[in-house]
Design a protein around this nucleic acid. Structure first.
Lengths: 222, 222
DNA sequence: GATTGTGAAGAGCTTCACAGCT
DNA sequence: AGCTGTGAAGCTCTTCACAATC
């Protein structure tokens, strides 16, 4: 694999989609060990040429007339996405969203481990949730240091998100998954990926309201 | 307000961010009733010229030397995003994610109402969750018809997402919010917005792994 | 015959920069 | 002086189309 040139951000987002298809195929017993750019594109709602460009962007190569080898693609995609290493994350916020995340089985499957749970609320601290004893916020930097967590997950109310973000950054966290509907302004900038339910619903309302361009092609992004 | 020209999709996503700022300002008592494109841009992590283009795209206008009127912006943004009407949604899947969504207060605040909860699991059907009696899947189209719901929320395991998506579409649903990590392939294409925790984590892993371009400017998208 | 890899063309979005308004 | 509105330039990503490969 001739090594990455440069992966455009929109391409990187699509790699996740390809990885889903590749993983499914890897688990299917009787399936072919090859997959074509057209197949990958159909599953992801993307043109085949786009798929080939995306795969080429991190050095994956296929065989003309045959397709891409599933096993190679799987490894290549995981490397390109930074999943070749396991990731440790601490979760801040043991409310509804936090609990749903703790119960979400796919995180572990993809190599993400939630190593600690913290909350500001004294009523929750000390209680066990999904096997994790909830810890107090003033232990944050110690927990990060001891666990070696690289990522932080913010699942607190909007008002507290900014403060938690700062605490995570000063504790040495290198990336943040933010479930609060707030943009974080961090002194030392680290990657922040937001998951905002409200924004998603607004996007949906926008698209449903917008005059559909009657394109015919059944795009239905996931 | 001279009416919308055309709102680019990336712009539409940013409108949600501006709306957050505008709502915050609307609730603050002592705050000015104007806001500048620079302020909006800083809160959203976007250049000021970009903000002005975005706002112009749906016909919002400001006063040179002064800024935009908060109240007007608020109304304009909500209209542009399709939030001037209330939306009714049915939720399919009463698992962890479904329950977290039911408890999420912001939906109602933004004008989204979950009018019904359905689940395939007989063990849950009939139970009450957050005031909603969980209904059986074979009542789906009747529930949609009777409630007049326009949106569907998929919060079921990945394997079932495709089938649920089809059921929603044939029941006449006009848009889908999909929490399952699957792209839906629908016979009659309706807008689908995906909220995929795994994809978000992968994006984060990608960005943390990628050689940071040392840009200096503290972008930290939310 | 099927499928990849890719230069070139095309489309769309972002940034610049400045005239014009308050 | 401060801020908007916007044409023009610049940039990035996407689509096209086809030679090369299996």
């Amino acid at each position: 694999m001739p090594e990455r040139t440069r992966i455009p951000k929109p391409a990187a987002r699509r790699l996740s989609l390809y990885l889903r298809t590749v993983q499914d195929r890897l688990e299917q017993e009787g399936a072919s060990d090859r997959v074509s750019s057209r197949e990958l594109g159909e599953a992801a709602g993307v043109a085949d040429a786009q798929v080939r460009k995306d795969l080429a962007s991190f050095g994956a190569g296929g065989q003309p007339g045959v397709g891409y080898r599933i096993r190679d693609l799987h490894e290549g995609l995981r490397r390109a996405l930074g999943l070749q290493q396991p990731w440790r994350a601490i979760l801040v916020g043991a409310g509804n969203i936090g609990r749903a995340l703790l119960a979400y089985p796919r995180f572990a499957q993809e190599g993400f481990e939630i190593v600690a749970v913290l909350d500001r609320d004294g009523g929750v601290v000390g209680r066990k949730i999904a096997g994790h004893a909830v810890q107090s916020m003033n232990q944050l930097s110690e927990v990060v240091r001891r666990s070696g967590a690289q990522l932080g997950v913010i699942a607190v109310p909007p008002d507290e998100a900014q403060a938690v973000g700062e605490m995570l950054v000063s504790a040495g966290i290198r990336g943040i998954l933010n479930f609060a509907p707030r943009s974080l302004r961090l002194t030392r900038p680290v990657p922040v990926v937001g998951v905002d339910f409200t924004e998603a619903l607004e996007r949906l309302a926008f698209e449903v309201t917008a005059i559909r361009p009657a394109s015919g092609r059944g795009r239905s992004g996931g």
